[in-house]
């Protein structure tokens, strides 16, 4: 069971994450969008969306530091576990609260605005609860366990000795379930649900994260493109919602 949860399952999810994106890019570029609903409603969105997105970017930064920087590196820099923990918990709490507030506003908006709820797809209905669970568990870890000492970890739980080691081992293809033994339940669940989220990621609206317009900072303002480069006209591709009937071409004599 441990082998399945901490070795097989993560690889299934990560493979799905990568191959799913490749597949989506190859066959559904047209469906690759943030699917904004701002045209329908913008009052709640103008608060909820920036709160959520800036929050989640902070959370992402925290995860990059927490998972990829081994404890030994910060020790070498003379940063004690206690000080590291203090900074991580305080910044994490701010980012986490912003994220959750934003998400609650966005889900409330999605449910109560008829036009927005009308365009909520089946994948949204799977993705939002999953995202909500992952974020809620993350907040339990940061605030519950590490701030208030839930589960008897009065000094906070040192995930850098366990979860982070396991995660790095998975990514470097030396997987081992051992570092996760003894991890507290909320961290375990958070990691598992996060893996599941990564697994379904490419099939949901979350693909827009990989469309982050980084290149915009470097390109010239005006883009010219030649007609020749576009190639022959293509058949209409599948979008996230069918907007028209495919034109069936009459057969016979022309």
């Amino acid at each position: 069971m441990k082998t399945f949860l901490w070795i097989i399952f993560p690889y299934i999810c990560l493979t799905s994450f990568i191959l799913g994106h490749v597949w989506r890019y190859k066959y559904d570029k047209f469906g690759w969008t943030s699917r904004s609903s701002q045209l329908y409603e913008k009052k709640i969105l103008s608060w909820g969306s920036p709160l959520f997105h800036y929050g989640i970017l902070g959370v992402l930064a925290g995860h990059v530091v927490g998972l990829f920087v081994p404890e030994s590196w910060t020790n070498d820099l003379g940063i004690s576990e206690h000080r590291y923990h203090l900074v991580a918990v305080s910044l994490g709490t701010v980012a986490g609260v912003a994220t959750v507030t934003g998400l609650v506003l966005l889900i409330y908006r999605r449910r109560t605005t008829p036009s927005v709820f009308r365009v909520t797809s089946a994948t949204d209905k799977i993705m939002y609860p999953l995202l909500g669970i992952v974020i809620a568990l993350g907040l339990v870890n940061t605030i519950g366990v590490n701030l208030f000492g839930l589960g008897g970890y009065s000094g906070g739980y040192n995930y850098r000795n366990s979860v982070a080691v396991w995660f790095r081992d998975v990514l470097t293809f030396h997987p081992s379930a051992a570092p996760m033994i003894g991890a507290t339940w909320s961290f375990e669940l958070h990691a598992l649900f996060a893996m599941l989220l990564l697994g379904v990621w490419p099939y949901t609206r979350l693909v827009h994260v990989l469309a982050a317009p980084v290149g915009y900072a470097y390109r010239p303002y005006i883009v010219y493109r030649s007609r020749d480069a576009q190639g022959a006209s293509r058949l209409p591709r599948r979008g996230w919602e069918r907007v028209d009937q495919r034109v069936s071409v009459k057969r016979g004599r022309h």
């Binding site: 570029k29 047209f30 690759w32 969008t33 943030s34 699917r35 904004s36 701002q38 827009h208 469309a211 317009p213 005006i222 883009v223 010219y224 493109r225 030649s226 007609r227 591709r237």
Partner: peptide, 20 residues
């Protein structure tokens, strides 16, 4: 993009990500 042959301004539907 602006087409270099005739200057017509178009949106590549496959590259648009809906940032508005």
């Amino acid at each position: 993009y602006k087409r270099s042959e005739d200057g017509i301004v178009l949106v590549d539907q496959d590259r648009c990500r809906g940032w508005r």
